[in-house]
């Protein structure tokens, strides 16, 4: 176990998530991609905390922030998906590309 290994894992999760967020058509699936990217961020943060500055608490606080961001992202995403679906029965980004309601 080294810092590099953890960071490689984080990079892998981030890249998979990025691929999903870019290639998926459904809003909900895009959110899954974003969550996966944040998942990578958690791994990287925890590894940095452990291998670079275990004395401080900034790494832990950052993880708390990331977890909160995930929750907010999901809640807001579902609210937007519901609003779009209510107005025009779509859940695909291509169909929601224009701003007209």
């Amino acid at each position: 176990m080294t810092l590099e290994l953890f960071l490689l894992l984080a990079a892998g999760l981030f890249a998979i998530g990025l691929f999903g967020a870019l290639s998926q058509m459904s809003i909900v699936m895009i959110m899954m991609g974003l969550e996966l990217m944040l998942n990578g961020v958690i791994v990287a943060t925890a590894a940095f905390w452990f291998y670079v500055a275990p004395g401080g608490t900034d790494g832990q606080v950052l993880i708390v922030v990331v977890i909160t961001a995930m929750a907010i992202e999901m809640a807001a995403g579902f609210a937007v998906a519901t609003a779009i679906y209510r107005s025009r029965q779509v859940d695909m980004t291509d169909d929601a590309a224009d701003l007209a309601g």
């Binding site: 990079a11 990025l18 691929f19 290639s23």
Partner: peptide, 25 residues
């Protein structure tokens, strides 16, 4: 299939991954 622009996304994700790995190493 629920994908669009699979190839472009894969390329972007791949490039990002390689850049990250290079940085890490």
């Amino acid at each position: 299939s629920m994908f669009h622009n699979t190839k472009g996304s894969a390329v972007i994700a791949g490039v990002v991954f390689v850049a990250l790995v290079a940085g890490i190493l």
